[in-house]
Computed example of a mutant assay.
Amino acid sequence: MSSNLPRDPRKHDEPFNDFRGLMNGFFHKPPVKGFLQSMDEFFQMPFSTFSVQVQEFDKEHIITAELPGVKKEQIHIDVLDRSIKITVKHLEIIEEENDVDKVYKKSQSMQQLSRNIYLGHQIDERKVKASYQNGLLKIRVSKPMGKKILIEE
């Protein structure tokens, strides 16, 4: 015998509909929604680096890094024991203000790229010089001069 009452299809036809609704709400409300958006943005960003060439001459190494669009203030050079570390930091702050809806939104992102160039000899930081022009960073690193030994006859 069938009933002429209207049936609620959510309750009878799909037993997991309530669970699906709870899970859908879970993933579309803060803080999970924000976390998932951050993960999506992270994996959409290309993993990249910058090009570096090292030339060796008799008295020095010349390290050239191509950094188009980078400001001088974003570049950091560290002299380590036997290597040079070049780091580029980009901080972006976006602020949005809507007076009509009384909403203020601020977001911040930071991207950092670095390269470590091993030179194989002790580096005297006083003998390192750097210049930056038109997106090209040049670092000159003097080679240590060994002591000449005279050979007796």
Rank of each mutant, 00 (worst) to 15 (best):
113 L>A: 09
8 D>S: 11
12 H>I: 07
42 F>G: 12
47 F>W: 02
30 P>V: 04
44 Q>T: 02
102 K>P: 02
130 A>E: 13
12 H>A: 07
74 Q>P: 01
151 I>L: 15
23 M>W: 13
21 G>R: 08
51 S>M: 06
144 P>I: 06
136 L>Y: 01
86 I>R: 09
60 E>C: 01
30 P>D: 15
117 I>T: 12
68 P>S: 02
99 D>W: 13
43 F>I: 14
13 D>W: 08
2 S>G: 10
58 D>Y: 00
136 L>I: 11
113 L>T: 03
65 A>Q: 09
32 V>C: 05
26 F>D: 11
47 F>A: 05
114 S>E: 11
144 P>A: 07
111 Q>E: 09
69 G>C: 05
67 L>V: 09
112 Q>H: 07
76 H>E: 00
148 K>R: 10
47 F>V: 07
98 N>D: 12
151 I>H: 14
91 L>G: 05
38 S>A: 13
49 T>D: 14
44 Q>M: 13
151 I>C: 12
99 D>P: 09
4 N>R: 06
57 F>R: 07
31 P>T: 01
141 V>Q: 12
143 K>R: 15
144 P>N: 15
42 F>P: 04
88 V>M: 07
133 Q>I: 01
87 T>A: 14
27 F>S: 11
139 I>R: 06
140 R>C: 10
94 I>D: 15
113 L>N: 15
28 H>F: 01
7 R>M: 15
2 S>V: 13
22 L>I: 05
44 Q>C: 02
102 K>Q: 12
86 I>P: 09
77 I>N: 13
89 K>L: 11
70 V>M: 03
88 V>G: 08
70 V>F: 03
49 T>F: 10
90 H>V: 14
61 H>E: 11
113 L>P: 01
140 R>Q: 14
94 I>N: 14
14 E>P: 07
99 D>C: 01
53 Q>L: 01
79 V>S: 11
54 V>H: 15
36 L>C: 02
132 Y>W: 05
72 K>I: 08
113 L>F: 07
141 V>L: 05
110 M>W: 01
57 F>V: 10
27 F>A: 05
110 M>S: 08
3 S>N: 06
21 G>W: 15
89 K>W: 05
136 L>T: 08
62 I>W: 04
41 E>P: 01
57 F>Q: 14
22 L>T: 03
10 R>V: 05
28 H>Y: 02
46 P>C: 03
57 F>S: 14
54 V>A: 03
101 D>S: 13
80 L>D: 08
33 K>G: 00
125 E>C: 03
116 N>R: 09
32 V>P: 06
134 N>W: 00
119 L>F: 04
